[in-house]
Simulated scan of single mutants.
Amino acid sequence: MSDVRGIRGLFVGVRYLGRGVWWVARRPRQWVFGMVPALIVLVFYAAALVWLAGRADELAVWVTPFADSWEEQWRTVARVIAGVAILVAGGLVAVLTFTAATLLVGEPFYERISERVEESCGGAPEEPDVPWTVKIGRAVRDSLILGAVAVAFAVTFFALGFVPVLGQFVVPVVAAVVSGWFLAGELTSVALERRGLVRRERFALMRRERPVVVGFGAATFVTFLIPLGAVLVMPGAVAGGTLLARERLAPGEPEEPGEPAEDRPVTKGDVSAQGEH
Rank of each mutant, 00 (worst) to 15 (best):
2 S>T: 14
3 D>R: 11
5 R>I: 11
5 R>F: 14
5 R>V: 10
9 G>A: 07
11 F>C: 01
12 V>K: 00
13 G>R: 03
14 V>Q: 06
17 L>S: 03
18 G>V: 09
18 G>I: 04
29 R>Y: 11
39 L>G: 14
41 V>T: 01
44 F>T: 13
46 A>H: 13
51 W>S: 12
57 D>G: 07
60 A>M: 02
66 F>M: 13
67 A>G: 05
69 S>C: 01
74 W>C: 00
75 R>T: 04
77 V>N: 05
77 V>T: 12
78 A>L: 10
80 V>R: 09
80 V>S: 09
81 I>Q: 10
82 A>C: 05
84 V>E: 01
85 A>K: 10
87 L>G: 00
87 L>R: 02
87 L>E: 03
91 G>P: 07
92 L>Y: 15
93 V>C: 08
96 L>S: 11
100 A>C: 06
102 T>Y: 05
104 L>R: 11
105 V>A: 12
109 F>H: 15
113 I>W: 06
119 E>P: 01
126 E>R: 12
130 V>F: 08
132 W>Q: 11
134 V>T: 15
138 R>L: 04
143 S>K: 03
145 I>W: 14
146 L>R: 14
150 A>W: 01
150 A>Q: 00
151 V>K: 06
152 A>S: 14
153 F>L: 11
156 T>C: 07
157 F>K: 07
161 G>D: 08
166 L>D: 03
183 L>R: 02
184 A>F: 00
186 E>H: 04
200 R>V: 13
203 F>N: 01
204 A>D: 13
206 M>S: 07
209 E>T: 10
213 V>S: 00
216 F>H: 01
220 T>P: 00
221 F>K: 00
226 I>M: 10
228 L>D: 02
229 G>D: 08
230 A>D: 09
233 V>M: 11
233 V>F: 08
234 M>Y: 09
235 P>A: 03
241 G>D: 02
243 L>Y: 03
243 L>E: 08
245 A>D: 02
245 A>L: 05
245 A>V: 01
248 R>L: 11
251 P>M: 06
252 G>Q: 08
252 G>I: 08
255 E>A: 15
256 E>K: 11
258 G>E: 12
264 R>C: 07
264 R>V: 06
266 V>T: 15
266 V>S: 07
